[in-house]
């Protein structure tokens, strides 16, 4: 249990752990510090629910808003509109101790393990920091928890690692320390933003397996943000595909990979081939153009300028709602109408 006990903890044990409703995170662009010249709509109307103990993946290209979504969930950005409801409590209403409880409840694993660790602190200090911030003043207690969590991320014996500085560790070890830091406050949810994209291929699987094992053992909710569809299959239960600030398709992993519904998802899958010598002799089908500007997104469906199946008079006019073309499989595309 977290060190900070609060009333918010008691509520809402039954519903989803995290519910996001109509979430918008816009960044205002200002000229000379005050003149508003527009907004970057990084997250632009996102709804979803995450159950306890579920592992989901948010997949999308850079600039699709997946990292902004992660930061909004972590409380690092204020939502422009909409709600994040955690454990039945609106995060926007949390103050003081309740907010600290929320921060302890959501762990954060970042992309660049070296950058994620302060270079001037040793591992003991790095892992002590969250505990100190959350009022655990007993050195003995901190040491106990640090050793426990190091053991959990398989960095043992702890003695060999505690006094090291980040630059003395390998990339994989660094990422384990980052994961240990996310776990040390005993969160109920972990948000991992591209946790392996900076690591070598041989280490990636190891880190992903570790995350998956901890997620199962601790019954954590894991939100796994990635641009790499091929790693998702084994490490998530559900996939959300994001494009230009919105979720365009969501489904269980196998369902989505087997029957992609949205034209964007289809083109993403077409661009990724499993390793094969024949790949070198094939041209991949790639939709033309580039993702739209989030400052001036196109009207209607945001994928319509690149979509091979765009329906004139429909797609560029109205926003597609979430259709459910197959059971448990939702896709925001007018083709399903």
């Amino acid at each position: 249990m977290s060190a900070v006990r609060s009333s918010a903890q008691a509520r809402g044990r039954d519903g989803p752990l995290l519910a996001v409703q109509d979430l918008h995170t816009w960044f205002e662009l200002r000229q000379w510090g005050f003149l508003r010249v527009g907004s970057v709509r990084a997250v632009d109307g996102v709804d979803f629910e995450l159950a306890r103990g579920e592992a989901v993946a948010f997949v999308g290209e850079s600039g699709c808003g997946k990292s902004s979504l992660a930061r909004t969930l972590l409380g690092l950005h204020k939502p422009t509109r909409g709600e994040v409801v955690f454990n039945g409590t609106r995060v926007a209403d949390l103050r003081g101790k309740d907010m600290q409880w929320y921060r302890a409840s959501v762990g954060y694993v970042q992309q660049d393990p070296y950058g994620a660790l302060p270079p001037f602190m040793d591992v003991r200090r790095i892992l002590s920091e969250p505990l100190i911030v959350h009022g655990i003043s007993s050195r003995v207690e901190r040491e106990r928890r640090i050793r426990q969590v190091l053991d959990e991320v398989r960095l043992s014996p702890a003695e060999t690692i505690l006094d090291k500085f980040p630059h003395m560790l390998s990339g994989g070890q660094q990422q384990r320390v980052v994961i240990a830091r996310a776990l040390v406050l005993e969160p109920s949810m972990i948000i991992a933003d591209e946790p392996v994209s900076m690591l070598d291929a041989s280490v990636r699987v190891e880190i992903l397996n570790l995350l998956r094992r901890i997620q199962t053992e601790r019954e954590l909710t894991l939100a796994f943000i990635t641009h790499d569809l091929s790693t998702v299959r084994h490490f998530a239960d559900r996939i959300f595909v994001m494009y230009a600030g919105r979720i365009v398709e969501q489904a269980p992993v196998d369902e989505l990979l087997a029957h992609p519904q949205h034209p964007y998802t289809q083109s993403l899958l077409a661009a990724i081939a499993d390793v094969d010598a024949a790949n070198a002799r094939q041209q991949r089908e790639v939709p033309g153009g580039e993702p739209p500007s989030l400052l001036h997104p196109p009207p209607g469906c945001r994928f319509h300028p690149r979509c091979p199946h765009a329906i004139a008079g429909v797609c560029e006019v109205d926003d597609p709602p979430q259709f459910e073309p197959r059971r448990g499989h939702r896709s925001a595309c007018w083709l399903h109408r």
């Binding site: 041989s202 990636r204 699987v205 190891e206 091929s230 084994h234 990724i272 499993d274």
Partner: peptide, 16 residues
């Protein structure tokens, strides 16, 4: 190394 590559369309789990 080949076994550590995650594959989108195959069932077997990658190994590190």
């Amino acid at each position: 190394l080949m076994a550590s590559v995650p594959r989108l369309r195959q069932r077997e789990e990658p190994a590190h």
